[in-house]
């Protein structure tokens, strides 16, 4: 039992890591990763909503009729997103401002509906919690890595601390939308490359 729980947790960290392996939730991954802190904040907000939604869906999975389940899940998700949005606005106004409409857009983040549909509605609470934690932490890490790359090249800093000297000419394109697409594209290729290499070594 403990072993399978660990497996549910672990799969979100590499095997199904969103958004690179599980290509879901790409909109926030591209939109808010112009700095590390924005990426982490977005990842944590998504983790919170995903966890609460998975727990709720798992609890009500036997009482909701199949025909209206999607509508029910969407309303549940919208509720938790409202909570997350108001919390961010009250406690961390600058971050809330930087993320802007992308916090409410967690409602239609396909990761959350996807996990509710593919996992939580078929499984008891404990595995659902582990699944949400794994996928949520994997997502947060991915966003942090993308934010890191774009912040280093775009501003020459990490977490607003300048690490590259005055000689460094910032690559403006990295902060612009085009940079987001490029970084994401190359990271997907990198993840493909690494996982194929791993599969090959296992075979030999």
């Amino acid at each position: 039992m403990a072993n399978s729980l660990w497996h549910e947790f672990k799969k979100g960290l590499w095997q199904d890591i969103p958004p690179f392996r599980l290509v879901l939730g790409t909109c926030p991954a591209l939109a808010v990763t112009n700095s590390v802190i924005n990426g982490i904040a977005m990842g944590l907000a998504t983790l919170f909503v995903l966890l609460c939604a998975n727990i709720s869906v798992s609890i009500i999975r036997k009482i909701v009729p199949a025909q209206v389940r999607i509508a029910a899940y969407v309303v549940i998700i919208a509720l938790y997103v409202t909570v997350a949005d108001m919390f961010l606005a009250a406690m961390f106004p600058p971050i809330s401002k930087a993320l802007g409409p992308y916090v409410p857009l967690i409602v239609v983040n396909c990761i959350i509906l996807g996990r509710a549909e593919a996992f939580a509605q078929k499984n008891p609470i404990m595995p659902s919690i582990m699944d949400a934690l794994g996928i949520g932490i994997g997502f947060t890490m991915s966003l942090a890595v993308m934010g890191l790359i774009r912040e280093i090249f775009g501003f020459g800093s990490i977490l607003d601390i300048k690490i590259l000297g005055d000689w460094f000419e910032p690559w403006i394109v990295m902060i612009l939308p085009a940079g987001a697409f490029f970084v994401f594209g190359f990271l997907v290729a990198l993840v493909n490359y690494l996982s194929r290499k791993k599969a090959e070594t296992v075979c030999h």
């Binding site: 085009a178 697409f181 490029f182 594209g185 190359f186 997907v188 990198l190 493909n192 194929r196």
Partner: peptide, 18 residues
């Protein structure tokens, strides 16, 4: 091979954004 699928599509989207 590693760029096939989503990866190359994203890179093209980046060029379109430019």
């Amino acid at each position: 091979r590693v760029f096939q699928g989503i990866s190359i599509t994203l890179i093209i989207a980046g060029m379109m954004a430019l």
